[in-house]
Each structure stands twice: as C-alpha cells, then as structure tokens.
C-alpha cells in the first residue's frame, strides 16, 4: 500500500501539489486524471522518489521512502516517465536487461536472464528483441520500455502517460497488458492518463486532480459521472453505458 499524506510540492512560489492525501491500494490499477497542470505527473514522480517533496510523508508498505536506500527501493517500485528520448543505440534485449540492474548491479545471473526472457515474451517482443530501439516504431519502443519495467519485477509500477503517441490498437494492447499484470501477477499499477475512456474502462480506482489538489477520488463508478467530470474538467460530457463499460462523449 502507498500512503501519500499531506504532501506538498512547490516550484519557487508556486505550489504545484497542495496538501494531497491519497491511499493507493495493492493489487489495483489506480489512475490519476485531471486537466493539464493539475500536478499528476509531479505527484507520481514524488511517489517514485524522482522528485523530492517539500512537505508531508510518503509511505510504501508503511515505511518512509526518504529513509530507504534507493537501490532497495528500485526492487520495490518502478517508474516509467512519459518521454524516453534516449540517444544510445541499444537493442530491445539490452534495454530489458537493464531492468535487472537493481538485483545484479550489471552482472546478470541465469535467474536475471530468465526474468528478461519472460518480460520479452510477456510483451510479445521475441521477434524484435535484437533490433535497435532507434529503428522501432513508437508503439514497439513503448512496449520495450514496459518490458524493462516488467523485468525489474517490482510490486509497484508507476507509468506516466504510457499511451502517449500510441495509436488505438497499441493503446489497447498496453492497457490489457497492465490489467494482466494486476490480475495475474498481483502487481499494483498507478497511471497518469489523459484519455478518460481508457481510465474508465481499465482502472479500479480513479484519483482526480485539479490545480494541485484532489477534487475527487473513488471507484470508477463514483468518478465517471456527468456532475463529477464537469467539476474536474469544466466541460459538459455525456456519460453512457456500453457493454458494461462507462463511456464519456465530449466531442460536441
């Protein structure tokens, strides 16, 4: 379980995250939604220790993240940021093998390689595992990065806009994979996501932020409602049911 307790982050004078308290449950997909500049990514980065918080506490399974060794945390929690521009020529397999770094410090054992193979299989990357990343499409690259996170084999997986720049087919593929990670392997996934319908269909719990504060949090059914969404996004949406899923229509 991740406990975010009265957390605040400032950039200069500006408070980008204001006194946020959230509990992220184990074995669930939790999505952070909200308009641009709501502080979603900042919050996610603080949970993963990439950014240092100014106030409050963040506990993972009851222990403060600032008091734990970074190397130990890397076995517990992983994060994938939205832009992964790397200028290094690496193959998919080499990238995925970096996911084992927290365990092996660079000298991979047989067990490490087993995790690498499994992650590659899980993301269906066998055919392109020896191709260089700079020769792959956006969707393939994103799958390779997610495979690396899977190889890292952490209980908590944090993803910042994992569907960015992906077409519908690949977006669905990635969300299904995340669902599988949660349902079959008991992982806990936390997402920052912009597409409200992907959030609705695939998450268990939704946290809505606006202007650095939490507007509302609850199960998908509690959040994907016309009145709640109006408060979050300042716009009217039609919410309907289709095949047991809630959909938002907001194009008019």
């Amino acid at each position: 379980m991740v406990d975010i307790i009265h957390v605040t982050k400032r950039y200069g004078e500006k408070e980008v995250v204001k006194d946020v308290t959230v509990q992220i449950e184990k074995g669930k997909i939790t999505s952070f939604i909200g308009p641009n500049g709501a502080g979603k990514s900042t919050l996610l980065s603080m949970v993963s220790r990439l950014i240092v918080k100014d106030e409050g506490e963040i506990l993972i399974d009851g222990s403060d993240i600032t008091k734990r060794k970074s190397q130990e945390l890397a076995k517990k929690i992983s994060i994938l940021k939205q832009s992964n521009h790397i200028n290094l020529r690496l193959t998919v397999r080499e990238l995925v093998s970096f996911g084992r770094f927290p365990y092996s410090q660079g000298r991979l054992t047989e067990e490490d390689w087993r995790h690498v193979d499994e992650a590659i299989q899980f993301m269906e990357l066998e055919d392109i595992q020896n191709d260089y990343l700079d020769e792959l499409s956006g969707g393939q690259k994103q799958r390779a990065f997610i495979a690396m996170v899977i190889a890292q084999d952490t209980e908590y997986i944090l993803l910042d806009e994992p569907l960015n720049n992906l077409d519908m087919k690949h977006s669905v593929q990635i969300m299904k994979t995340l669902r599988k990670l949660v349902d079959e392997r008991g992982k806990t996934v936390v997402l920052v996501i912009h597409d409200i319908n992907f959030a609705s269909v695939y998450s268990d719990y939704i946290v809505a932020l606006k202007g650095g504060k939490i507007v509302k949090q609850g199960t998908t059914d509690e959040i994907i409602r016309q009145d709640v969404l109006r408060e979050i996004y300042d716009m009217d949406m039609t919410v309907g049911n289709f095949k047991n899923c809630r959909f938002c229509f907001y194009f008019h």
Partner: peptide
C-alpha cells in the same frame, strides 16, 4: 561500463534503477 550506459539514459531512468 554498465553504470555509464544507464546514466546515459537520463537521470530519472537511472534513479528508477536505484543508481546514484
């Protein structure tokens, strides 16, 4: 060597893997 490569992937990438 391997640590240099990981550092080359960027600061957040390196931190995620627990590298100083």
């Amino acid at each position: 060597a391997q640590k240099f490569t990981i550092a080359g992937m960027g600061e957040s990438f390196a931190k995620n893997l627990g590298l100083n």
